[in-house]
Design a protein around this nucleic acid. Structure first.
Length: 412
RNA sequence: GUGCCCAUAGCUCAGUCGGUUAGAGCGCCUGGUUGUGGUCCAGGAGGUCGCCGGUUCAAAUCCGGCUGGGCACCCCA
């Protein structure tokens, strides 16, 4: 039989990895709460349409990366590749437009069928925030600030940088797209094959091509700033000003674009060079068109998502597990007595690892292996005297403690 | 989907020009110690060299295919 293994692009979170993972999630949730973002969870799968319509029929995520399947009723369902569409759907389903503005935090697994590489999995985990119902730059500023705060709290801000761009409003985007198409069409023959394909599908994406030829040509391409209308330019200026006020450094990156129609105005990424090719650790933008695209009321939104695995790789410091006391019974009578003793200690808030099998030596080894700082030895001698032997695992010092004072003795 | 690199003990890895019984460190097991872990000492177990085929007197070693993994492209968190 072939060796049993995890599905390609998935991984097991064993205790140490889980602790790192959880540290990222817990820290982000705490920071989000400081900004009054409330935790929500949406289903891990949705009707395929929720993603297909919102992410864009031509996007790579939709065309080749979704885990889509038919359920027993014949409905097409899809494992969520991201969470914004799910939140938007929940907003519409729940008729929440009366409660705007809404500020949500989420965390959970996402699924994309991509070729795995460093920092990229098929089941990966994201944290994210969404701010719905606020059409002004103050929202963009707060959302970016929250992202920076999360990175600060994880101690990774100094290995990341904020890249910022504006995609303008629909009018600006249409004007710019026309200008780009005109420019690139003239120099079509100099583009890469992939570049020509992007020209047809999504000319904006030509700007972030990594192909040398495409880059050379796009370096001289029309600049978006010349096509932004006054409203879009002012909006972006206000966002920049807010970040300046907060002392949040950023770099304008005109190549930072979003392929999807509902994105507009602010687009941003916190990126790092420390993770190989997959540099984005938190990325987001404004999506004022999303909810109306899905058939809901016209509702502005902005948010970001962060990759937990990527952040966990950056965040080398995470809290150690609190100490556990080892309870080591010796002999059948002690094993019996240890059960209620362990129970009472746990109810007193003391984490107890009860040695379940093996002789004394085996159980002491177990105590050592789990890193216990204190061991409680309980044998016939102790039971007869109504005490337990408390051993300091570091220096081996032992003393007898009456059973009824044990909880107090073990409380730090 | 494309490209490059990799696959030897539980883990990390050596393995010379193709040549006798494939090694090390860590880990694991036993004993030194019948109620004492970690440290120390002594001993031990553990391998279809990823799989299939080819070349050769001889393959862990060379060649091909397959499977798996990593990285990069693409895309993105």
């Amino acid at each position: 039989m072939a060796k049993l293994r995890a599905v390609r692009g998935t991984q097991d979170l064993l205790p140490e990895a889980w602790a790192r993972h959880h540290h990222v999630e817990k820290t982000a949730r705490r920071v989000a709460f400081l900004f009054n973002y409330r935790s929500v969870a949406t289903p891990i799968f949705e009707f395929t349409d929720v993603f297909a319509r919102t992410l864009g029929e031509t996007s790579d995520v939709v065309t080749k990366e979704m885990y889509t399947f038919a359920d027993k009723g014949g409905e097409s369902l899809t494992l969520r590749p991201e969470n914004t569409a799910g939140v938007a759907r929940a907003f519409i389903s729940g008729n929440l437009q009366q409660q705007l503005p809404l500020k949500y935090f989420y965390s959970g697994p996402m699924f994309r069928h991509e070729r795995p590489q460093k920092g990229r999995l098929r089941q990966f985990h994201q944290i994210g925030i969404e701010l719905l119902g606020v059409p002004v730059p103050a929202a963009d500023i707060e959302v970016i600030q929250a992202g920076a705060h999360v990175l600060d709290a994880l101690g990774v801000r100094d290995v990341t940088r904020l890249e910022l761009n504006t995609l303008g409003d629909a009018e600006s985007r249409t004007a710019y797209r026309e200008a780009l198409v005109a420019y690139f069409t003239c120099r079509q023959s100099e583009l890469s094959e992939e570049g020509r394909s992007r020209l047809l599908r999504n000319p904006l994406r030509l700007l972030d091509s990594k192909d040398g030829r495409d880059r050379a040509i796009s370096a001289e391409a029309p600049r978006y700033d010349d096509y932004l209308n006054a409203f879009s330019a002012d909006f972006f200026a206000e966002v920049c000003e807010g970040l300046d006020t907060l002392g949040i450094a950023y770099r304008r990156n005109p190549r930072l674009v979003r392929g999807l129609d509902y994105y507009g105005h602010t687009a941003f990424e916190f990126v790092t060079d420390a993770l190989g090719a997959q540099g984005a650790v938190i990325a987001g933008g404004r999506y004022d068109g999303l909810i109306s695209t899905m058939g809901g009321p016209l509702t502005p939104g902005i948010g970001w998502a962060g990759g937990i695995e990527r952040l966990a790789m950056l965040a080398t410091d995470y809290p150690e597990a609190p100490p556990v006391v080892s309870l080591v019974p010796v002999g059948p009578a002690a094993e019996k007595a240890a059960l209620p003793l362990a129970d009472s200690l746990r109810r007193a808030g003391i984490a107890v690892d009860l040695g379940l099998s093996g002789n004394l030596k085996r159980r002491m080894q177990q105590a050592n292996r789990i890193g216990a700082q204190l061991a409680v030895l309980l044998g016939d001698d102790e039971i007869a005297k109504g005490v337990a032997t408390l051993r300091d695992m570091k220096d081996g010092a032992q003393r007898e403690v009456p059973i009824d004072q044990l909880a107090a003795a073990l409380t730090p």
